[in-house]
């Protein structure tokens, strides 16, 4: 892990915090996505598309049905800005399999337009085990040495990029979604609009991450802090 404050990019949509993981230079974007400039690869996690649909189907709650559009709009803005060759979604892209199938036509075509001409990799999550039927490649793990991309972190892994936990961290009492970084792994915050966060002090995360791990808070300018303090 090597990260320095001088490597902060300009504030704004794609402001980021640059660091290395297993010798690979990466950038944690304030917008909550990971940018691997050398491979022109954009990584996002836990989009939870179709959450309001699932909640109304399952619980009869009618949450504002705009989160899919909002999530896709933000992803689209990043793609337009960074022009990646490849996009990796680290799982829990859809809130469940039915939510994927019930995706409104406008959202589906918006997604397909975005995917056009890009390599698109769907990592399977615990919410959406079946591959989505909008194209792209579906897999449980994606190896791009020295990095490995999967949904849920494995304790013994090295050079691993994962999601699942929706980590958040605080500064001055304010919580924000956060990346968690140590010498072995990076855990991404959830990118979906309707997602909550798990405090990075939660025992699950605290035991997974090394003692000198960093939390990188998302926001106009990403801010890093020691994760365990």
């Amino acid at each position: 892990m090597r990260a320095s404050a001088e490597n902060m990019r300009q504030p704004g949509l794609t402001s980021g915090f640059e660091f290395t993981l297993s010798g690979t230079e990466l950038c944690a974007l304030g917008a909550g996505a990971l940018w691997w400039a050398k491979q022109k690869t954009l990584v996002v996690s836990d989009l939870h598309l179709g959450k309001s649909e699932r909640l109304s189907r399952r619980n009869g709650l009618s949450l504002p049905p705009y989160e899919t559009r909002d999530t896709l709009d933000r992803l689209h803005a990043l793609i337009t800005d960074l022009r990646p060759r490849c996009v990796i979604c680290l799982g829990d892209t859809f809130d469940d399999d039915l939510a994927a199938r019930n995706l409104p036509a406008t959202d589906k075509s918006c997604l397909q337009e975005m995917m056009h001409g890009l390599r698109w990799i769907w990592i399977q999550g615990n919410h959406d085990p079946a591959p989505p039927f909008v194209g792209g490649e579906a897999m449980a793990v994606f190896h791009a040495p020295p990095l490995t991309f999967r949904h849920i972190a494995l304790p013994e892994a090295i050079g691993e990029v994962s999601g699942h936990y929706h980590p958040k961290a605080s500064l001055r009492g304010q919580y924000r979604p956060a990346f968690l970084l140590d010498r072995n792994r990076l855990i991404l915050p959830a990118f979906g609009t309707y997602t909550g966060g798990l405090r990075c002090t939660d025992p699950v995360l605290a035991t997974l991450m090394e003692q000198d791990a960093l939390a990188i808070l998302t926001g106009a300018t990403p801010l890093r802090r020691p994760m365990h303090r």
Partner: peptide, 23 residues
């Protein structure tokens, strides 16, 4: 097990303001 399943009502508020301001 954790709290990541629930999300803040602030997000709903922001979303409504953006997409359905007369709700």
């Amino acid at each position: 097990s954790g709290r990541q399943a629930s999300f803040s009502s602030d997000i709903l508020y922001d979303t409504l303001r953006k997409y359905d301001p007369d709700h």
